[in-house]
Structure formats: structure tokens, C-alpha cells
Amino acid sequence: MRYEKPTTVEAASALLAGQGARVLAGGTDLLVQMKARVLSPDVVVDIKGIDATRKITKDASGYTIGAAVTGAELKEHPTLSKDWPGLVEAANLIGSTQVQGRASLGGNLCNGSPAADSVPGMIAAGAVATIAGPKGTRTLPVEDIMLAPRKLALTAGEFIVSFKIPARPAHGGDAYLRFIPRTEMDIAVVGCGVALALDASGTCTAARVSLGAVAARPLLVVDAGKALIGTKVDEAALAKMEAAARAACKPIDDKRGTVEFRIDVAGTLAKRTATIALERARKV
């Protein structure tokens, strides 16, 4: 195995276009899989030498978060937790303090697990990935990146440089909850991210609901969002949203939960998550 640490996106794409090349961000998935011999890359391309992958910038249009920024760094940012608390909480559920010191949003998404915690948080927030490759740069909404377990919409030589998170709407709030049988250090049985916006009268003008671990990929449940838009997010609207969330689930049976259990939890979790997002939206 060869280790490379390029300092430009062009050099990184060129290396990644080669046979058996793999991105290294925080390594908390990659190194585990290399040790277990699930992956045996010929070249490991450490993207942390590229400035754009390691910084958070903010302007009027929102945040640009480098793909290799760690969960700990997200939490320490002076305003991100105020604007997008749900996204930061989702990223901070990943593993332990030690894992937080390394784990990145890009790695969480590109590891290709349907249960990745930060992904529903990013989808709900409307995050869009900036992807660099041999042919230049393109953007893709986060919900369109993972196709199936371990399968991504990235082509040879492509990698994610950063994520664009829009500016929080004037009366906007987001939240992420996951169901696990323990209180820490576990993989989501179901995860749910919700972001919504209200107008001055408290009517919902936009809502995005995303579910993790209930299908082959994290889902943007458009119908669940629609159930809230135009309402005051009252009990009736929440019940409709809950039903839409359940209807979108196509989970598997495994040791963490049965199909029926996951579908049931998804609805309940969506309702609880939306309620937190709503409280936050009302407060700002």
C-alpha cells in the first residue's frame, strides 16, 4: 500500500483515478475495514492536506463545511450549533469522544452505510456536496449520493471536497434523533432528521424529513415534509407526517430490529424529531 497526501484537489483526483485508490479522511471506517481486510487499497489518498476539506466558512448563503472536518470541530464552531443544532448533534452521535476527534461528514456519507448518523441530518438541512473529479467540479444533493449499501454516485477519481449547508431560514429549526437500545456507542436502528421553517404567523413554509436505517440508503421522505407544509404543525399535521414516514420505510430484519419494529419506530421518531425542530424554529 502507498500513502499519498496531496495538497490540491487536482492532484487528489488524479491519484484517485488510479487503480485501487481510496480516500482517507478520519480513517475511523477505512482503517477498521483495512484491518479486517474488507478493503485492501493499493493507494490511500489522505485528503486532509487539501485546505478546502478541512475548514468551515460562513457567508450570507450559508456554510461551506470541508468534507474532512471532524465532529469535534463542528461542535466547537462558534455559530454552527446555533444555526443547525440538529446537524451538529447528528454528527456528534458518531462513536466516542475519540472517534469524534477524527470522524468526518464526508467519511460518514461515503462509507455507504444506510445507518450513518450525520446523513439524515445533512439531508434534512438541505446539504449539497461539492464533488471534485478528473473532469472538474460538480454538485449533488446529499440524498442523491448514496445509492445502496457501499454504493455511491461518485465515479472514478471523484471525491467530496465540501458540503454547502444553506443559511438557516429566519424562523427555522432542525433536529436529529436516533433509536438505539443503549445510551451511547451503538448503531442506529432508525435515525431521523427534520428541518423546517415557519413564517411570521407560525405556518410551516418548508419541511424536509429524512430517515436512516430503514431502507438500502438514507431517504428524503418528500411526502412527510409535504404533510407539514402549509399547516401550523399541529397534531393532525404531525399524524399525517408520521404516517408518511412509515409508508416510506423499506427496512430489513436484523439483530437490531425487525421490519415491523423499525417501521413503527420510524413514525414515532419522526414525530418526536419534528416536535423538537418546531420548538427550535419557534424560538428563533
Binding site: 478520519g26 480513517g27 482503517l31 490511500v44 471532524t70 475519540q98 476527534g101
Partner: peptide, 15 residues
């Protein structure tokens, strides 16, 4: 590592 708590088993020596 640079003041950040990490698992050294999940970091490459070259890093």
C-alpha cells in the same frame, strides 16, 4: 494528536 483525543490504532503512523 495536536491536542485532540483520538484512538491511535485508527491513525496511520505517517499521519
Amino acid at each position: 494528536l495536536d491536542g485532540r483525543l483520538v484512538c491511535s490504532c485508527l491513525i496511520l503512523g505517517v499521519e
